[in-house]
Simulated scan of single mutants.
Amino acid sequence: MDSQNSELVKQQVQAELANAYAQEFFTTVREKCFAKCITKPGPSLSSGEATCVSRCTDRYVDATRMISGVVLQAYSSGQGGV
């Protein structure tokens, strides 16, 4: 396999991993925030439920950013085995 094909395969694998991580993230957020915020499922969200889901999702996004930053910083400083 030449280097161009190798690079293409690497990019495809990275894209698949990114997609898998995104799916896992959204599944986790959906399950956790639903369990926390939706106490009486119905045809629509109350304003309190909508606010709770929004805040819950924001917390997961912020936490993921923070963790990703720490991992990337550790990796770039040579501590790849965090």
Rank of each mutant, 00 (worst) to 15 (best):
1 M>L: 11
2 D>S: 10
3 S>M: 13
4 Q>Y: 11
4 Q>T: 15
5 N>H: 13
5 N>F: 08
7 E>N: 13
7 E>L: 15
7 E>T: 14
7 E>A: 15
7 E>I: 12
7 E>G: 05
8 L>W: 09
9 V>H: 07
10 K>F: 14
10 K>I: 07
12 Q>D: 09
14 Q>E: 11
15 A>R: 14
15 A>F: 08
17 L>N: 12
17 L>P: 01
19 N>F: 07
19 N>H: 08
20 A>G: 02
23 Q>T: 10
23 Q>D: 06
23 Q>H: 03
25 F>N: 06
27 T>R: 11
28 T>Y: 01
28 T>L: 00
29 V>N: 01
30 R>H: 05
32 K>H: 13
34 F>G: 08
36 K>S: 14
37 C>N: 10
37 C>P: 11
41 P>K: 09
41 P>E: 08
41 P>T: 08
41 P>D: 09
42 G>Y: 00
42 G>T: 13
42 G>R: 08
43 P>D: 15
43 P>R: 15
44 S>F: 06
44 S>H: 05
45 L>W: 00
45 L>C: 04
46 S>M: 07
47 S>T: 04
47 S>G: 00
51 T>Q: 14
52 C>W: 04
53 V>S: 03
54 S>T: 13
55 R>D: 10
56 C>P: 12
56 C>V: 03
57 T>C: 01
58 D>S: 11
59 R>V: 10
59 R>Q: 15
62 D>Q: 12
62 D>C: 01
63 A>F: 04
64 T>Q: 05
65 R>M: 07
66 M>I: 10
68 S>L: 04
68 S>T: 15
69 G>C: 05
69 G>I: 08
70 V>N: 07
71 V>W: 03
71 V>F: 04
72 L>D: 15
72 L>I: 11
72 L>R: 14
72 L>M: 13
73 Q>W: 12
74 A>P: 00
74 A>F: 01
74 A>D: 09
74 A>W: 02
75 Y>R: 12
76 S>Y: 03
77 S>M: 10
77 S>H: 05
77 S>K: 09
78 G>A: 06
78 G>K: 07
78 G>Y: 00
81 G>A: 10
81 G>D: 14
